[in-house]
Computed example of a mutant assay.
Amino acid sequence: MVSLLNRLGLSCLGDLAAMKSSDLVGRFGPVGLEVHRLSRGFDRHPPITIAPPPERASTHRFEQSVEDINVVVATARQVADELVTHLSNQGVSCVRLHVCMQTDHGEQSDRLWYQPEGLTAAAMAERVRWQMEAWIATRGLTSGVVLLRYSPVGLRAREGRQLGLWGGSTQADEWAARAVERLTTMLGSDSVRVAQWRGGRDVGEAFALTPAAVVDMERRAETVVMKEVAWSGALPTPSPSIVYDEPLLAVVNDASGCVVSVSGRHELSASPAQVVIGRHVYNVVSWAGPWPVEERWWDPSRQRRAVRMQMVLARHGDASVRTATHAVVMVLEHGEWWMTARFG
């Protein structure tokens, strides 16, 4: 364009500024109008004269410092409900949220959370729990929380949700979420708990009962499937349906009656043939593993070294093998065998 202007006899900005804007628009279109504005020293875009959008940040100040994480999360859910309702009335949803918490001693935690599908009120409260748990674990708090602030920094137009025909969210999932929410309203925020994926290599740590008020029920099923597959060192799926609060002490013997052990190279001394739990004796129909796990080796007080196996057991002397078998998870730790979970 510069060479063309030179051929037209316009060699300096003063020549462009002296021309009518309509002539440049007629020859060059929108680019001509932009060049004419720049030559006269105007801004590329005219100033916005409309009123700024309303303040969408939601802040809650506690009357007294709060050290109980459940109290903070319950309050965060109430503040999130108000914020989501306010955004919904404007036809938008929050996809990027800044969460700020301050303590009575001036300590502050800031974090930016992103959810491309939009953050619900339960999802916001859930992020507050994650942020506070990480804050306590990494730094440690010297006082309670006195301020909580939500600042939506990324908004998008609110869109409807398309329910899936195969997999994903269904109408039944929505009905279940509404039923849980209704029970929570009737009985209280801590009365209704659902199993939420927490992560971990131990079957007893992978899920934990969490108050339903702070769980994003709409996307809970989808995220669990994705996270279970991605967790490194976890046992192969499917997960056991029964996890014992107190593992059952067991003895795993080989065919000669000797206790099965595992070497430092994670090799079995012999194939397991029999499992004794209390007064009950079971035959090992089949087995898989072992899967070793070594956690927190750098921390002498919390380090753990164990070996896990999956076994299919049948009662000793029972001829109806097909109807009497059941699969279990066995763990060898500190030289002792434990039954930690079972399937079905």
Rank of each mutant, 00 (worst) to 15 (best):
S169G: 05
G164Y: 08
E107N: 05
D43F: 11
E67D: 15
N70L: 11
H105E: 07
H60P: 04
E126S: 14
G118H: 06
H36E: 01
P46R: 08
Q102V: 09
D104S: 10
D43L: 14
E82C: 06
E55P: 12
R127D: 11
E126W: 07
H86W: 09
L33S: 12
E82D: 15
G91F: 02
V71N: 07
A57D: 14
A125H: 09
Q108E: 08
L97T: 02
D110G: 03
S93A: 08
S88I: 05
A123M: 09
R40T: 06
P54D: 05
L83T: 02
V73Q: 12
G91A: 10
G167C: 02
L38R: 15
R77Q: 06
G160R: 07
F28M: 04
I136V: 15
T120C: 10
V71H: 07
T142P: 02
M124L: 15
T49I: 15
V95G: 01
A125C: 13
G29N: 02
G32F: 00
M101T: 15
P116G: 05
E63S: 09
M124A: 15
V92E: 13
E55Y: 03
H105A: 13
R27D: 03
T75R: 13
F28P: 00
G144D: 01
S88M: 07
L38D: 03
Q102G: 11
V35Q: 00
I48T: 14
L147F: 11
G118M: 06
R56P: 03
S109M: 13
G144Y: 00
A134Q: 09
A80S: 14
V84S: 06
P116Y: 03
G91M: 01
E82G: 08
M132Y: 12
A157T: 10
G32V: 03
L148N: 00
G160V: 01
I48W: 07
L97S: 06
V99A: 08
V35M: 04
I48C: 10
A80K: 00
E159T: 11
H36Y: 01
R127N: 14
Y114R: 07
L119Y: 10
L33N: 06
G118V: 02
H60G: 07
M132A: 09
S93F: 02
A57C: 08
V25Q: 05
T120S: 15
C100N: 13
S143M: 02
P46C: 05
W130R: 14
S93R: 10
V92R: 04
L97H: 06
G91R: 01
V145Q: 01
A122D: 14
P152K: 03
G41K: 00
V84E: 07
P152N: 05
A76R: 03
S143F: 00
R158H: 12
L83G: 02
C100A: 11
L83C: 14
L112K: 11
R129N: 11
D68Q: 10
Q171Y: 09
R37T: 02
V153Q: 11
